[in-house]
Structures are given as C-alpha cells and as structure tokens.
Write a protein that binds this DNA or RNA. Sequence first.
DNA 1: TTGAAAGCGCTAACAA
DNA 2: TTGTTAGCGCTTTCAA
Lengths: 354, 354
Amino acid sequence: MKPQGKKKATIYDLSVLSGCSASTVSAVLNGTWRKRRIKESTAELIQGLAEQHQYTANLQARGLRNSRSGLVGLLLPVHDNRYFSSMAQTFEAQVRSHGKCPVVVSASRDPQEELATVETLISYSIDELFIAGATDPDSVHGLCEAAGIRHINIDLPGTKAPSVISDNYQGARLLTQAIIKRFDDAASPLKPEELFLFGGRNDHASRERIKGFRDIKTELLGHDSDACIQPTGYSPGMTQKAFEAFYEREGKLPRGLFINSSINFEGLLRFMAQHPHETFADIVVGCYDYDPFGSFLPFPVIMIRQDTESMLAKAFELIEETRPAVKIHLIQPELVHPRTALKGPLDSIRDIDA
Amino acid sequence: MKPQGKKKATIYDLSVLSGCSASTVSAVLNGTWRKRRIKESTAELIQGLAEQHQYTANLQARGLRNSRSGLVGLLLPVHDNRYFSSMAQTFEAQVRSHGKCPVVVSASRDPQEELATVETLISYSIDELFIAGATDPDSVHGLCEAAGIRHINIDLPGTKAPSVISDNYQGARLLTQAIIKRFDDAASPLKPEELFLFGGRNDHASRERIKGFRDIKTELLGHDSDACIQPTGYSPGMTQKAFEAFYEREGKLPRGLFINSSINFEGLLRFMAQHPHETFADIVVGCYDYDPFGSFLPFPVIMIRQDTESMLAKAFELIEETRPAVKIHLIQPELVHPRTALKGPLDSIRDIDA
DNA sequence: TTGAAAGCGCTAACAA
DNA sequence: TTGTTAGCGCTTTCAA
C-alpha cells in the first residue's frame, strides 16, 4: 500500500499526539501562540510533531473560518503579451513578499468574462484584487464593493476605485515626437499625411494616445486629419487587414507609423511576411509597447516601455491605505530608442548553474 | 449606509426565504436537484430567490466539504516569456471549458520555491496540477502523490509521473539542419568550427537539444567539438557575457548560431545593442523558441515553435485517464522560417469594436 | 497557561 | 419529495 492519498494530518491528529487541545495546536501552528501565552515548551513539542507529520494547514478551512483566503488576485486581459505577462511577474513577486498567494487570471477583454471571473474569485474569498486592463472596471468595482474587497484599477482607469495608469497622453506625445524627429535629416521632411496611427480602440488608453498623437502632430507638422487614425482594435488579424487595405489603396506604407500596441505590431509583422524588404525601406515605426526583439527590426523602431514595476508598486501602496482616494495616478512611461535591449523582471531571478 | 461589505446571501438565507430546508436549497443551487428528485416548482422558486439575492456559493465552504476546490493549477518557471505565457493562455481556456477555475503561478525555476508553491496549492485543495518546466518534477510528484492529486509534467519530464514534452532532440536536429542549409549558396560553406550553440543548462531539454545539435552537425559537417557548446543558463545577462567574451576572443561572431531559447536570444540582443550592424552581416541564427518579432530581425532567424496547444491537449487527455502510464509523450515542434508571423492563442479571442 | 464549544457555509447520508 | 443531522478543518471567544 503506497502512501497514495494518505490523509493529511490535521490539528486534531496533532492534538491527540501532543496531548494538547486542538485550539492550542491551532494557535501554535498559526503563529498566534505567543500572544495566547502558550508555554514555549508546548509550542516546541507541537511544532516538532507538525514537522514530523508534515502538517500543513488546510487553507480552505482557515479561509472559511476567517472569511478571507490569503489569495490576492490579478485580473488580466490576456497572458501572452509582454506587457501583461511582465505585470504578472512583478505582481507575483510583490504578493509573495507580503506572505500571500498570488492568483493571476485572464478574461480575454470580454466584459462578461471579466465579471464572471471576478465573481469566481470573490467566491473563493479572495482578499484583494488588482484589475488590469479591464474593459469595464466600474462593474467589476460593483462586485468588489458589494463583497467588501479592496481593489485597484491598473492600466485602464475606472471612476469608482483608485486607478494607476500609464500616462498615455504624455507617452504618445513623446513617441510621436520621436518619430517625427527621426525624419529631421531625411531627404524629404515628413508630411502630416505621411504619419498614421494604427491600432487600439475606444478605450481610455487608446483615446489618450490618439489625443497625444494628434496634439503633438499638429504642433510639429501643422496639421492632422481623421483619416490618419486607424483604430483597428486589439487584434493582429484586424491590424494586418488594415495595413493590407492601406497598401492596396496607396501602393506604399505611411513613412511614419504610430502603432498602438505590440498586439497591433504583430499585425504589421503579418503584413511584412507578405511583402519584400523594400516596402519598409523608408519607414519609421513607433510602438506603444516594448518588446526587445521589436527594437531590432530592420527599420527604426522607437518603443514605449510602460513602467509596470512602478505601476504595481503604486497600486500596492494604495491598496494598503484604509480609505484611498478615488483618483487616477499617472505613471510616466519610458521612451526606448531603436536597438535597445532593456532588462526586465527576469533579470532578478537567479540562475543557478548558469 | 452603502451596501459596503454587505454580507453575501447563504443557503440559510434562501432556506428561510423559501421555506425549504438548507439541504434542498443546496441541492437546487449546485445542480444535483434532479437526481435528488426535487420538485421542479421548488427548484424554480429557489433559483428565482437566488437570482434576486445575487446568491453565489461560497467556494471555500464547498471545497472544504468536498475536499476539492474546483481549482486547477499550472506551475510555470516564469510568466514573462512567450512560450510559457502562451501555455498559460491555452491552459486557461482549456480549464475554463471544463468548468473549473484556472490558477497559474510561477516559481522562478527555483526548486525550493517550486515545492513551497505546490504545497500552498495543495493546501487550497487544488484538484489537478500541471507542472511546466519544473527543475525538480519528481519532488513535486512526491507532494502531489502524498496528497492524492493528479498531476502531469509538461516541458521538462519527470520519472514518476506522465510527462508531455516537446521533442527537443528532433527539434534541435531540424533547427541545426536548417541553419546549415542556409549556407548552401554562401560564398564559403559553413565550417564546423563556425557553428555554435549558446544557452541552456543541464536540464533535460537542453541536453536533448545539445545532443540533436551535435549529432546532425557531425553528420552534415563531419565534426563537432565541445568548444562549440556554450551552456550559459537561462539568463539574458549570462548569455550576453558569453557573447561578449567570444567576440573579444575571436573578433567576430560565429556565422552559425544555435540559441537555446528566447531568453538566451535576449542576451544576443543585448550584445547587438553594443555593436554595429556589420557585426551581424554574415550570420544565421536558429532559436529554439518562437517570437514573431525575432523572426524579422535584420539577419536570417530560423525558429522553433513548440506546440503548446498539442502539449496541453495531450496533458489534459492524460490527466483524465484513471491510471495514466508513467511515460514520456513527445510532441513535435514546428520549424519556422525567417520572416514568418504565426497566429497564436490571441487570435481566437474576439475583439468587439475592432 | 490551556481546553471546551460554537460556528464559518456547504454537502450527503439517512430518515421521513 | 423533502428535512435532519453531522461534519469538513480551522479559529476564537469564554471559561477554567
């Protein structure tokens, strides 16, 4: 008979073994024993037994009793995206350092799924929730508030809970300006009708970026028209189609390209796969997202790195306040020049036998 | 008084409201009522009340009672990596489609942290565990077995539980061969001492890849020496250092480069950031990982895309068997030619107002 | 310094 | 067709 499914030891087992009551065992094992004035020696006895029998607390039972679980949630739109997965990485580290258990889930940018997912998390008596890139943060707020769960919006702001977001307006200005600057020494200067924005949709981040783009473009190039804005959603496929359509119509790409996110940038890649190098000979791309590989493409790619570390640090700071003000905290993103390979959260992970 | 932290409705509340007993309410609300032969009308009554009072089950209580939680875990080395985050993405979709709740956690490739993390998950009565890229799958197995938890290794195999891994040997042969082929029309053919492998360490995947690399290299180029293998660990920093050292010594890069993973590839990017374009004029890179941006760099980059969808599909299939054989299942990876932008899990996500 | 007892919300025999 | 009851493993008064 293998120790297959051997029942885990409980405080009652240890209670019997030690001759103490369950409540004493409980106190010893959850760290409250000093303030319950339990004798050092009994504590040691019980701790020894616990070790010996590989006791680990049943966290569901504890959670049920305390109506809190020790779980801290991060709700993401998607996992497989550099921005969000780096958020997940720093989130985990932060939560762990607070002695809690991180839970990361994605909801596909679908308002229904967001709500359902959050309900599930609440049903597990999650303690705190970080809501990143939610399409509908205020509804999520509703659920959290009703359940008395502390929560913070990240990346996309809500109107009912504190929000920490990237300064999309400033970032977009920076990026757009950098694109334009890049043409300073070009044979012919960049004309307003040669600078386009692709990607994004009608969410707060996109709107701010579009505003930043248009403002600085008008300032520097004197003009901007609606036609230069192509909000293709957050999908590589749609973005590719938009590029194909543009190319079909114009016979070339815009020389200056502001791309709303790495997801949209992948749409450009799909377009690239269908067209020869020469198509991209003369273009400058700015991408509102950072990807190290993207930074080394065969044309100048200027990128924006959103500062997930600072955003999360701020978010953790806020969530610990008793009554955080419902306001938006802007975090400045960073402009990344072409051919730059930044360090990331992975760099702090040790690599033993490297 | 806002509905701040208003207590959630329980089956007892509904029991009172409906005039039925708690067990009836419970049965109705967890779907077992048909087989408990509860009248359709009472079921409807209770469901109506539940809706009205926004009842949601306390999953910790249910889990405690059932000694299972409805949670399914995926243990990853890291989040912010394309391979693993795409694994997370498909994992979530799969788990959701089974009506369970996915939990993704990372453990930094640290055996201690892996064990601690799994213990925590077990303490939450997780139902099943998918162990991806664990440095020490067999110890993790020990914990799962003791707790009676079904588990499967992914990516890095263990000897005690079924494993689904990428066919690293074949993949490496494919990739190496493709690198060599690429020099067929070159001015001078590739010599054995011009083809190097960088990255990886002493884990199963790396060993297999190195074997595949060396075998096919010897077959095609007639020779391979230990000096051509540079296992720099899974860290961009170390890899960069290795490239710098090589360059310092030789005054140039190897013309043929097999890079063990995208993480190591980032090390090459960091090296690139310090050196002019010309340094890379003549090289061909093969990377054992797929990244769409990596595929479009200014030199030929051949990549391997590991088939996470198939791996997870197989893993789910196995975990559902009552007594799965402890064997290794190989999944064939895919060779990706330069300038290719593949579709990914994101493509199946709808994008509403695109 | 410790123990007894109640209860968190839910499920599943067993009875009725 | 439904209700009664016990208990999952833990914490926390309150009493000793």
